[in-house]
Amino acid sequence: MDKPITRAHRIASLFLLGLFLFNYPMLALFNVSHTVLGVPVMYAYLFAAWALVIALAAAIIEGRG
């Protein structure tokens, strides 16, 4: 909480990033029935994006900046 405003801004930006990642048109890009490494592309994309958002949130919240 050294710089609460900066951190709040980052979290708000992450929220907007999440809205973007989990909506049309991003979803349409991966709406194909291929697999990557044996896993369906859509499935892989959603979990990867989800994990990314969580990781960023953890980094912003638990980090020192």
Binding site: I11, L14, F15, G18, F22, W50
Partner: peptide, 16 residues
């Protein structure tokens, strides 16, 4: 999945 992605996004603005 949207049922779980929704709360993920909400908690990001949860601090507000």
């Amino acid at each position: 999945l949207p049922i779980y992605i929704g709360p993920t996004l909400l908690l990001l603005v949860g601090w507000f």
